[in-house]
Structure formats: structure tokens, C-alpha cells
Amino acid sequence: MVRPVRWRLSSAPLLEVVWDGERLLYQGASGETHYLNAAGSQVVARLHEGEATVDDLLAVLDPAPSAGAAEVLRRSQLEALLARLDELGIVIGTTTA
């Protein structure tokens, strides 16, 4: 499978409340309610502004990234989160640059 390059919010209707940085999200097409902690919430907030790459999103989560193993871990965690959000119909990954 080709790894998605850019991410955007799906066109499904979303209802959201944000309390103390945490986000509850109602996905109108599935009727499911999801909870996002502060980091996950920031990712969605960034996607509200427009399409983004994984690097864009990493920059939002940590404006002064460290190098090395920690960075790899963060990237893989973010990718896992995005894949999960994709499965839930909240974001869509596209493979075109």
C-alpha cells in the first residue's frame, strides 16, 4: 500500500466541543462520538486550517523538534493516529504530493 502524503479532514459533517484542549467529536456520517486528547486535538485543529503533510503536523505538535529516536517514535505515533482517524472517517489521506 502506498503511504499517504497529505492529509485533510473528510467532508463528513463534524460537531465538536473543545474543553481544556481536549476535543469531543461527533462524526455525522457514522454517528460515532470520539474523544481526542490535547495532542490529537491539535492535529485536528491544524487540519481545520487546510491540508497538511506529516511534517506540517509534527511541527504543530512540537515547534522545536529534537532529532534521533524520539523523533522517529513521534512520527510513527502520529502516523498511527492519522491512520486511525482515516478509518473512522474523520480524515482522508491522499497519495498525491
Binding site: 466541543v17 474543553w19 481544556d20 481536549e22 476535543r23 469531543l24 474523544y35
Partner: peptide, 8 residues
């Protein structure tokens, strides 16, 4: 209790 926990 924080609000999101209460919501859930």
C-alpha cells in the same frame, strides 16, 4: 471531574 470525562 473534567468536562470531557464527564461527557464520556
Amino acid at each position: 471531574l473534567n468536562r470531557s470525562d464527564a461527557f464520556l
